[in-house]
């Protein structure tokens, strides 16, 4: 019986360096990740935290930091009782340069049995990564937080 894995691929008209920078920048994540700004010293083994309006939303630990090819961290939502007590899962982001674009593959796995987080992230990643693509290609984000909150709530 295989455990669930979520995989999402998107192509972005950008460079691996710019995509990697956006994924590891407090300012950029705060913009495209619906206000969830990432902070970390990005060293392997160090903590990573996502805060929105000073509230801790998500925490993890850096597993791989290999710019501009691969970023990986553990992933534990902290903002929703629904997810409390569930062990951290794992996110791997792979960036591959293809001509003048980047193929970004996000693989999210290692979930707890009967994970509730899995359903949440299956709704969340398309939102975040659609916004990331728009952010890098147009400098704006098509989606905003209030509606994201509604979507996240309906996912549970």
């Amino acid at each position: 019986m295989s455990k669930p894995t979520f995989v999402y691929v998107t192509y972005i008209a950008s460079t691996p360096e710019k995509v990697f920078k956006a994924l590891t920048s407090t300012e950029a994540t705060g913009k495209f990740w619906f206000g969830n700004a990432a902070t970390s010293d990005w060293k392997v083994g160090s903590p990573i935290e996502f805060h929105r309006e000073s509230k801790l939303i998500l925490q993890g630990q850096i597993l791989v930091n290999d710019p501009p090819r691969r970023l990986s961290y553990t992933f534990q939502p902290m903002h929703n009782e629904l997810y409390s007590g569930e062990k951290p899962s794992r996110v791997v982001m792979d960036l591959e340069k293809q001509k003048d674009q980047v193929k970004l593959t996000v693989t999210h796995d290692d979930f707890a049995p009967d994970s509730k987080v899995f359903a949440g992230i299956s709704n969340g990643w398309p939102l975040v990564l659609s916004n990331l693509k728009s952010y890098l290609e147009t400098g704006t984000t098509p989606l905003y937080a209030p509606w994201y909150e509604k979507e996240a709530a309906s996912a549970s």
Binding site: Y11, A13, S130, K133, T138
Partner: peptide, 20 residues
């Protein structure tokens, strides 16, 4: 599909294709 739909999104938002 990820290629086609990445292209649709770019074309509509920027007027350019991401994968030419």
């Amino acid at each position: 599909w990820p290629r086609i739909l990445s292209n649709v999104k770019s074309l509509l938002e920027t007027g350019e294709l991401v994968l030419k």
